[in-house]
Design a protein around this nucleic acid. Sequence first.
DNA 1: TTGTACGCGTTATCAG
DNA 2: CTGATAACGCGTACAA
Lengths: 314, 314
Amino acid sequence: MSRLLNGTSYVSSDAREAIEKAIAKVGYVQNTAARNLVTRRSRAVGFVVHEPHELFLDDPNIGAILLGANEVVSEADFQLVVLVLDSERDSQRVADYLQGGFVDGAVLVSARQHDTIAGAVERLGLPAVFIGHPPGHPTIPYVGIDNRSAARSVTEELLRTGRRRVAMVASALDRDSGSDRLAGFRDALGDRFDPRLVVDHPLYSYASGLDGARELLRRDPAIDGIFAASDAVAAGVLEALRQAGRSVPGDVGVVGFDDSAWAVRCVPALSTVRQPARLMGRRAAEIVLGQIQGAEVEPGGALLDTEVVWRASA
Amino acid sequence: MSRLLNGTSYVSSDAREAIEKAIAKVGYVQNTAARNLVTRRSRAVGFVVHEPHELFLDDPNIGAILLGANEVVSEADFQLVVLVLDSERDSQRVADYLQGGFVDGAVLVSARQHDTIAGAVERLGLPAVFIGHPPGHPTIPYVGIDNRSAARSVTEELLRTGRRRVAMVASALDRDSGSDRLAGFRDALGDRFDPRLVVDHPLYSYASGLDGARELLRRDPAIDGIFAASDAVAAGVLEALRQAGRSVPGDVGVVGFDDSAWAVRCVPALSTVRQPARLMGRRAAEIVLGQIQGAEVEPGGALLDTEVVWRASA
DNA sequence: TTGTACGCGTTATCAG
DNA sequence: CTGATAACGCGTACAA
């Protein structure tokens, strides 16, 4: 029967018929656990997402990355299984899950430094790839974007429109994306960089933008440009400016980052940086599948191109 | 060793020490597939999401439901695994996955009629619960909200503010949520219901709202109230009204549905219906876990309470 | 083309 | 308290 189901050998047509009849009668289904046990593979790939509290709700990129990864994994006839980490307890359980042979590889999204999961994956030698680039795990490849140069580009664009006092609401400085965006902002400003015109909040969120912009206006009411570390943050900035009676882009130019669903729905529509999120998901999946099929792990990263999208907010 | 790891029996302390040393040395990890094979349980629960194209990106409810379910499942020390359906091909593979013993139960989100997954689950007798209420699967319990009476309430509220010509942009009429919201709208209007003042689009999306409101204005420029089938739709409606030069809530009152992240960020902020999404996720998980632990399946549904949230758009 | 052992890593049972 | 051993359901290699 194994031979019939897997097409691994020739089977006579009356034997086939008999088997198929029996299957239909009993409602037989293959037991995958048993199969995995003997084949030592699961034909599944994990997609591990950290800290969804705000992330899942606010960050549309993660959905697009997920969809991209799912496409590729699905085309290879593997099953993508998403694992969400919402507590320290989850961490341990997910690590066990990954180690237990449920998956042949994993895509790790928004991991942080000193990561339980990344550590376990590395120790086990499980095929894996990061989205983004948490430090401290040199053996695991990653796919991401060049946050620093993208941030620099969009800030330069803002300066080019004639803004003189440009500030930034930074976020998530404990992640590479956050600190790189700040670095790019600094690059663009060069000598004109003024640390007093930077505030930072831990989360890429609307609330961060709202608070951040208020604080910036308090520090320097003459600000005429703001770079927000993400579109969600930028949306908060816009609201703070509106409440403060500043017009956008008249009084203040605002740029965001991500080109998320928000960007076009803000009033005015946001100038921002487009991330190829879906493509990142695809690429990450390809890398993991490659490793599973025995390809050499090329350490280091694949950096995808971004694009500045200029709309009405600056 | 099994006894040590699972604490199933007493083990002498020197035996324990020897084992622990060996484990550390070899880097031993339990193989879950083998364990599942003999115990016939996986300590995992599936969370199946259909049609994420727009849904995952636009609908924040699904994220909140997911988080709620994850909390409960995690507290029971089970692993929640999310499976995304993006194509017909995915359907078959996910059905196989569910049948293959990878999970002990499943939460089915936004399933539709004649559903491959629901059919497979039902045939297999796998513990399961729907979020929402797709017709045709009487044996599977569900948790949801009373879309019809909630839609009625919010429409009535709109009428109470003095609106005379009230229209609706309906969505997803092939799902119970969509058709029930339309029914509730109709209930509220009673004799005044005019089918010409209803347009429908397949997806709960911004674009649906944009197109829908334009069409409505074409049909009757004197419209002074619009009920949008979701907040995303309402956001599109708002934009269409802005482009048409109508003020909100001055010329037209607008109400949405979901109380999603959008609602407070629209200008003006949206009056809408609050769904207890996180609680729905929790309740669904509780029901599935109950079944897994041998509780009787109570067919039928658990309907959670909604609340009309009145803001600035009407 | 088909039948038949064997082994995958674990748990559970039963004597010691 | 401990050691041995039979399943669990499947793929596979080898013999018929």
